[in-house]
Design a protein around this nucleic acid. Structure first.
Length: 417
DNA sequence: ATGCCAACCAATCGCCTGGT
DNA sequence: ACCAGGCGATTGGTTGGCAT
């Protein structure tokens, strides 16, 4: 109270005013001081007797700080915005040692953790399997999927994220022993498929699933058949992969198709036997002996070769597949090796040749041929009907359109001369 | 003119592999 | 484990030629 005389009030000195405030007198109630009055009415900080603090008050200031700054205060957050003269550092210290009416044994971080559920990185809440499973269940209900390390923030647990939960499961910490993982935990406690350690496959199970698939769809499964009926999480594509490469208890170098071919007699492209020209010719001969005609691609099943049909053999010949490197066709093969007339390789016709045949016909029968005269004497593979059509339509090398009748009429005239 | 057939062509299916 | 792509096999449709 060394401020001396009061300016604008002659005779008054601040020391006396303070005394009156303290003891009472001159109309004042007493029991206070100039410093307290100014602190109360003018927000002037009283350094020797700072006002008591209440936990509720500190929390209000902290809420205010959070609203203004978007984060909770800590001891290095500087001055308290809502309370001039107060600093977060002092408040934190007072909370710790118990001063200014505060209980002690606390800290800003502890107080906020307790009253406002603010995450305290120095003392994170313990994790337990039960807690994690609860979060996982919530995640599953909300998103339809089970959480993984990449699932981001934990729904319903402020400050928690799946990456750190996962790390604690792996490495331990926050009360967890480590050496586990989200995948293992969910596999064990919730029966969720663990991508990294899928359950072992057995041939027995796969055949069971395949039979079920067949019953349900009428078809045998392939790797593109999608989900496996009756085995949630299993996928025919991943089973097929396990076959090719081995793994999940399968030896590898197998295939779904081979298994089904072997154990269920399913025909598949993967297990088609190699074809040879000799083999095809044997089958063709057998067909010819039995049916009296040579096979074509519509001849259906191959006698003596269950599972083979002429359609696929014709296809293999045409594409040079199934070991038949050279491209050909069933028709060409039979024409070449068995002298079977190639349906498309009809001999070229000339007027001269037709006239020869017509004259022969005339000599033999006394009549000139017409379209209904049947087979040609000198050329058993030719018929007069086909010759007539060729003449009429100008096919088989006969460019000029004519007709058998005209040609014969001309020839008759010539032969009469 | 119409129907049939074989050849041809294009699209799709299914197996498998390489990359990630 | 998953995805994408290569490749062979298969299927469905079209074309052209012949027979009716």
């Amino acid at each position: 109270m060394g401020s001396g005389a009061v300016k604008d009030a002659p005779g008054e000195i601040w020391k006396n005013i303070n005394m009156s405030l303290n003891r009472g007198g001159r109309g004042l109630p007493g029991g206070t001081s100039l410093a307290q009055l100014l602190a109360w009415k003018r927000n002037v900080r009283n350094t020797t007797r700072p006002p008591n603090l209440a936990v509720e008050q500190v929390l209000k200031w902290a809420d205010h700080h959070y609203e203004k700054r978007g984060k909770w205060p800590n001891s290095s957050s500087g001055m308290v915005h809502a309370a001039p003269g107060e600093s977060w550092r002092n408040i934190n210290m007072s909370l710790h040692v118990g001063r200014r009416g505060l209980p002690g044994g606390l800290s800003l971080a502890k107080l906020l953790a307790e009253k406002r559920s603010v995450r305290n990185p120095q003392a994170l809440p313990k994790l337990t399997a039960a807690k994690i499973l609860h979060w996982a269940d919530v995640h599953h209900r909300k998103t339809g999927e089970w959480p993984t390390v990449k699932s981001g923030p934990v729904i319903g647990a402020a400050g928690e994220d799946w990456a750190s939960v996962s790390r604690c499961l792996h490495a331990g910490g926050r009360g967890l022993p480590g050496k586990s993982s989200l995948g293992k935990l969910l596999a064990e406690r919730r029966g969720v498929r663990n991508q990294k350690a899928p359950p072992m496959l057995t041939i027995h199970n796969i055949l069971k699933w395949a039979d079920a698939h067949r019953r349900k769809t009428g078809e045998w499964p392939t790797e593109n058949s999608g989900e496996v009926f009756g085995a949630p999480g299993e996928n025919w594509n991943s089973i097929a992969n396990a076959f090719y490469r081995g793994g999940r208890g399968l030896p590898g170098n197998l295939s779904l198709a081979k298994l089904l071919a072997e154990r269920r007699g399913v025909r598949s492209t993967a297990v088609l036997r190699r074809l040879t020209i000799e083999q095809i010719l044997e089958w063709a001969d057998a067909h010819h002996r039995k049916r009296g005609v040579w096979p074509n691609k519509k001849s259906g099943e191959v006698f003596g070769a269950p599972g083979e049909d002429w359609k696929s053999i014709a296809g293999a010949l045409y594409h040079g597949g199934r070991g038949l490197r050279k491209k050909s066709s069933l028709a060409k093969l039979l024409a070449e090796k068995r002298g079977v007339p190639h349906p498309k390789a009809y001999a070229k016709l000339t007027t001269k040749l037709i006239l020869q045949w017509a004259n022969a016909h005339h000599r033999n029968t006394g009549e000139w041929p017409n379209a209904n005269s049947g087979a040609v004497f000198d050329a058993p593979r030719e018929t007069w009907s086909s010759i007539a059509t060729a003449l009429y339509q100008g096919g088989r090398g006969l460019r000029k359109k004519s007709s058998l009748a005209k040609l014969v009429a001309a020839e008759r005239g010539a032969s009469r001369r």
